[in-house]
Every structure is written in C-alpha cells, then in structure tokens.
Design a binder for these strands. Structure first.
Lengths: 211, 211
DNA sequence: CGTATTTTCAGTATAAATACCGATTTTTTT
DNA sequence: AAAAAAATCGGTATTTATACTGAAAATACG
C-alpha cells in the first residue's frame, strides 16, 4: 500500500513542483494539496493521509499552529515541515508540536522522497543543513523557546504598528491607551526576543515570520 | 521552432516545478537551469535562449543587476521576472532594465505558459495581481525610483549594522568613524526610503530585498 | 472560583535617535 | 581636468526610546 500524502503551502509553484516529483514514485500517492491551513484542516475530517507536508511560513496561521492542531486532533498523521534556511527559530517548537521531519525548500528531489519514506516509517528526518544550523545556534534556540517566543495578541498588534512607521505616542493614540502601556509592551517585546533595540526587533520578527 | 528557455532561481524546488511544467509543452524547450546569476551569465556565452526567466530575490546578486547585464550584453534575450507579491519595489526599475514580463511565484501553470509565449512574441506580460498593486502604489513607486532607492556602499554597511543590534555609537567605533558620520548616513537612509524611523526602515529594506 | 497571565498605567532617569543648521575632503564619473 | 556624488565631521535642540522602580485591573484557564 502506498504512502498517502497531503501538501500545505501557500506557494502554488512549490506545490506544483512537489506534485510533479511525487507523481513519479509509485509508493507515494498525493491525495490533496492546500494553499492555506484552514482548507487543509477542513479536509482532514474526510481524508486520512499518512504524511502531511507543511510549509512553515504561512500568511494567515503560522505553521506551528497548524502542526499543533493536527498533532492533537489527528495524532496518527506524520508531519514533515517545509522550511527556508532563514527560519530555524521555529524548529524546536515544531519538534515539540509533533513534527517528525524537516526539509528545506531548496532541497533536491531525492532528499524529499527519502524524507517522506523515512518519517512514514516512524523515523525522524532532519535536513543536514538544518542539523548544522541547529548545532550552531543550539544555545540561543534553547533560550528562545524557553521563555517563549510566542507573543500575545496585544504585543503582536503593537509590533505591527511599530513596523508601520508609528511612534509609541501615535500607537497609544491609535489604540486609546497610555503611552506607558505601549512602552511596557515594547519592553516585553525586546525582552522576549532578546534584542536591545527596535531595529533588531523588526529584523528578528521578520526572520521568524512574526511580521 | 520551439521557444528556448533558461531559468534562474536560487530555489531548486521552484526550478523543479517550472521544469516539470515546461516539459509538458512541445513549443517550449528548457535548455538550462541555474541556481545563481554568475552561472547563468557564464553559460550565456555558449547557449542562446529566447527567453530568460529570472528570480528577483537572489542572495548574491540582485535580480536587476543580472537583468541589466543581460539587457546590455544580450539584447535579443527576452526577460521574464519571477517575483513575490511583497517585492513590487523593483518592478519599475526592472522595466527600465529591459524586463518584458512579470509573473508571480504563486502563479498557475497556464499563466506561466501564456506569459512565456507572450513575451517571446515581443509583447509585455504583467500578472494581473501585479497590475493591481502597481496601480495602487503608483505614486510612491514613482517617487521611489525617482531619487533612487539605490544605496551606496557605506549606507548598506551602516544599514546592516543597524539591523544587527548596534547603536550609532557602536557602529561608529566599529568602523572607526565619528558618530556624526553615522547619523548622517542614517538620515540619508531615512530620506531615501521615505520612512521616519528605524523600525520602518528595516522593514522596508527587508521588503525590498536590501537586507 | 482561584490562579496565572495579560493588559493596563505611573514616575523618573538616561540613552539614543532624529531634525535642523552647516562644512570639508575624498572618490567616482564624465 | 572639471563636475558630481559620496563620505566625512561638527554643534545644538528636540523627540523618542529604553531602563528601572512598581502595581492595579482585566482576561484566560484549570
């Protein structure tokens, strides 16, 4: 019996590439492709794939949210994350969310197929480049996820406005809050992301897909 | 005689997707794929494609640099730019660099094929979504390219350090310059990119692929 | 219903960035 | 060689952000 796979990626061209690759292999069957997380989640109540290939940088819901839901509602589905090199921040958190493997979007055909087969057998697959990066940034990633990179609703809101050319005072006016409150949120953002100024904050958040 | 095409993209998975799509059409022939601009340029002295599909966000050389070189050295080659929605900043500058068409990475198979055929006939092809965005941001883009979004070497250097968590004083020490000089560069960066603070500067630069 | 987290707000102080005024020297381009 | 652009540095004033106290109210969660 063949391995049934679904793909989630907001990039149709990537989906197309994966689709065409998988087609060539008899032991793997593509039973669904999705451009956003909600569509995938809806369809999972009907279809039962063995492996779900998930893009990490999604515009609406972030990859780890989807992974979390799938992991809890459909624990039998094995997940394989699709990621760029730039986004290693999520990796540890994704591991905890039950993701079994990581492949890069810049991966080759053979590596992809190998990864699908491996995670379907219950093993873990980490792209070698990701392994290196993990090794290299081990400490900072550990700290990263330790006190949580997960931002609260307000923090995200403030973050977004900061990136949009607003000052603290303007943000305060916009949200009908005190400037102190905004300062407070800014401070928390800097602490959570371990940066010491707004410039680095914005960069890191974009790198992590929070913006 | 079929349309001979080369592809430049640092994302193997995208290349793979394009490759598989083009394969299916008899009137289009893929004669080369490249993961970086230099490889493509080297090969152009031997191969003579009709159409070159170029990724815009490349890590080493930026897309418009490549386009400029091709346009001047091989004016017969028609260029089709591959872009994300996020990066419309380059579009006008690319047009001036001789690019004939724009397709989104999130495009569908048919649109891609249609675009290749159209630009090969000497016509222009703009993805409808890009058209909309161009319309919407018309004024700001015009201003953008007018006084040049092109940053100088020093400005890029300072910009990078700003994004890396350094203060003006620290940057000054690092580069053995006066703090005033750094202030000067910062001010120019803000003016050139038409933003009023560092946060927005970083965001815009990342959006534009300058970081 | 009680506990934890989030969100809210305050004072004060310092550090940093931005807004103006300017200018000279060096490098690149024509 | 001349012109243009880039890179350098200075003073001063103002605005904004960050650091350090701390704490009350609102929400979410078990």
């Amino acid at each position: 019996m063949s391995i049934r796979v679904v793909i989630l990626d907001d990039h149709p061209l990537i989906v197309n590439g994966l689709e065409n690759i998988i087609k060539k292999y008899d032991d793997i069957e593509l039973i669904g492709t999705y451009l956003n997380g909600d569509d995938l989640l809806k369809d999972l109540s009907k279809k039962k794939p063995d492996v779900a290939i998930l893009d990490i940088n999604m515009p609406d819901k972030s990859g780890d949210e989807i992974a979390k839901i799938i992991f809890h509602e459909y624990p039998k589905i094995v997940m394989l994350a699709l990621t760029n090199l730039d986004n290693i921040y999520y990796i540890k958190s994704m591991l905890q969310q039950g993701v079994s493997g990581y492949i890069l979007k810049s991966t080759k055909e053979e590596t992809l197929i190998q990864a699908i087969r491996k995670v379907n057998r219950g093993e873990q697959f980490l792209d070698s480049t990701i392994k290196d990066r993990l090794q290299h940034d081990k400490i900072s990633i550990a700290r990263q996820t330790a006190h949580g990179t997960i931002l609260t609703r307000r923090e995200k809101e403030v973050l977004k406005l900061i990136a949009e050319n607003y000052t603290s005072q303007e943000i305060a006016d916009k949200l009908f809050l005190s400037k102190r409150t905004i300062d407070s949120h800014r401070l928390n953002l800097l602490l959570k992301l371990e940066v010491k100024n707004t410039a680095a904050l914005i960069k890191k958040c974009i790198d992590m897909g929070l913006l």
